[in-house]
């Protein structure tokens, strides 16, 4: 009973807070403890959440200075520039994209198969290079005095393969967005591919290295839009593998793609 009495009398005297009155001092002391604690928890959570991010990979977008490249322009299935280096047997193949999430709007018909000078910024990853064309008329012009026009490298068909990996848009993955892969990037990758950015399947080889496959339709044209829902997801797909110079081309039909 005396316990009950003392509890009742303690409750009578317990500090009571009203927002429009000064804070009673025992409550103020409690708040001086709680508020910094909450702030500390916030900071700790921020650090933990920031640490939970993954390495986006070593990819660089050299968007400070535009450079000029001379080579052979090929418009299909995706715009690319073939550059012949001295002493090399096959030309380097650079995919050509435009600013934003666009590609394939500049110089397609009139420059296909011709020597050109292109001007733009490079994106690089794993030794692959892409050129983002400048937005003006000088981005892609016919080369009046071509020095070395590379021949189109022969296409070697190697047969049907089944691969596991993720379909990404090549521009973001090569450095425009970091990370340019995964579920949170899925919508962006779809929008890029819809805008003409070449889709690429990225797989891992036995040593853990990344292997790139440029995806095309079985007829050799751009990837069928019915394949877009699989972009950004872990997929298994099978198709005809072709090698063109140093580039792997995978001819794939949407019905041969499945989510894993």
């Amino acid at each position: 009973m005396s316990d009950q009495r003392s509890r009742v009398s303690m409750l009578s005297q317990a500090p009571f807070y009203v927002g429009y009155l000064p804070v009673p001092s025992p409550l103020a002391a409690f708040l001086f403890l709680i508020v910094p604690t909450v702030l500390a928890v916030l900071a700790f959570t921020a650090i933990a959440a920031a640490r939970s991010q993954r390495d986006p990979g070593a990819a660089v977008w050299n968007d400070a200075h535009a450079r000029q490249f001379r080579g052979l322009f090929v418009a299909h299935p995706y715009p690319m520039l073939l550059i012949q280096k001295d002493g090399e047997e096959t030309p380097e193949i650079h995919l050509l994209v435009e600013m934003g999430k666009h590609a394939g709007r500049i110089g397609l018909a009139e420059l296909n198969g011709k020597s050109v000078i292109s001007s733009g910024w490079t994106l690089e990853r794993d030794g692959r290079r892409m050129i983002e064309l400048e937005p003006d008329a000088k981005a892609l012009v016919a080369d009046a005095s071509p020095s070395a026009v590379p021949p189109l490298p022969p296409v070697v068909t190697t047969g049907r393969v089944t691969l596991h990996g993720e379909i990404v848009d090549s521009k973001c993955y090569l450095g425009a967005m970091k990370p340019g892969e995964g579920k949170t990037h899925k919508a962006c990758a779809t929008l890029c591919i819809r805008g003409g950015i070449p889709p690429v399947l990225v797989t891992r080889d036995d040593a853990g290295g990344r292997v790139y496959y440029l995806l095309v339709d079985p007829s050799g044209g751009p990837l069928d839009p019915a394949a877009w829902p699989f972009v950004g997801d872990p997929v298994e797909l099978s198709g005809e593998l072709e090698l063109m110079g140093g580039m792997r081309l995978l001819k794939v039909s949407p019905r041969d793609i499945s989510r894993r």
Partner: peptide
């Protein structure tokens, strides 16, 4: 504090070619 800590840690952990 939250935004500062998150951005700061992200910038310190992933730099250069590996930057997010």
């Amino acid at each position: 504090l939250y935004l500062g800590a998150f951005v700061g840690v992200s910038k310190v952990l992933w730099q250069g070619a590996h930057g997010i």
